[in-house]
Amino acid sequence: MADVEQVLQPLQQLMRDTRRLAPREGSLDEPTKVWTEQERFQDQVADALVIILKTRGCTWALQGGCTFCGYVNDSMVRKVSVENFLAQMRLALGQSWKGQPVVKIYTSGSFLDDTEVPREAQAGVLALLPEGVRKATIEAQTHHATRDKLAAVRGALRPEVELEVAFGVESAHAPVLAWSVNKDDRFPDFIAACGHARGLGIKTKAYIMLKPPFLTEREALDDAVATALLCAPHCNLLSINPCNVQNRTLVERMFRRGLYRSPWLWSVAEALTRISAGTHTPVRSNPVGAGQQRGAHNCGTCDGHVADAIEQFSLSRDPSLLPGAQCACREEWLDILELEGFLQGAQP
């Protein structure tokens, strides 16, 4: 029997074959992408500057990586120096920072992974944040978030700036992590990382995957809710990420063969309802590509309406805004929750 604590080699190999990564051309002194979005900060809606830094790529993804993750397609697959990181950061702030109180610095991998982002750069990038920034968010894999590293990044920021670290938990359940997500973190890593963060006054956010491959709609919904409730005591914010179909992923291969359907928006709404009823830890979701075949979607008629309600809930945290039974497709979704398991992998 395959061990859930081990990486399943055939799955890892399949991910490598799917990705076919090679070194990329392009300046290492410019970030991948920069934009501004809205998010909830200190009980208000605030502007947030999002900076995606160019890196050699997520170390885990370069070895195979998670079955749904297409962010690795941004990888340069060559060395990015400390100077390069600082240059990217200066350029992004110089061109796009217009006083946004929140700055999110993402790498499409793990900010605290020394192989991806050298230690000097981890501190150096954060130290560049100008006065006026009140919150910084970074993303990391849980097993990179050691006490030392967290302390170093905390120390690079002025004390009044809030630091938030987001962790891709995906699932609290080892079989899902080992055989569906293909992740090298396990749930105890998350609990440990959150413990370190709390001791240093760092806020934590858990990303929870809704419907990784091979799970039925109901299995996925139950797994996301259970995971969120297990994460809740340890972190400050729960983020439900409905799986979307990204390029060059296992999920995409299955999608093309009619073997994968992104979750229903009903499932997203249901997950938010159940989670907010079960914990005081705030929960939110911003479905990527909502209403499209490659994103969380319903029947095509009610998608806009349900996606808006989810958006409103995420900003307001008012469960009464979550959608009720406004569309006949909700009945179909409820039937599918009960019947899909009998289909053995075929889409209902």
């Binding site: 029997m1 395959a2 399943l8 080699q9 055939p10 399949l14 055989w179 299955m254 992998g345």
Partner: peptide, 23 residues
């Protein structure tokens, strides 16, 4: 309870699933 890897996932995956399912 099975590990439901579809046959299209490739031979190695199917073998891994069969091993799991046989257990």
């Amino acid at each position: 309870p099975d590990l439901p890897y579809p046959p299209l996932a490739g031979e190695a995956m199917v073998r891994a699933a069969q091993e799991q399912n046989a257990s």
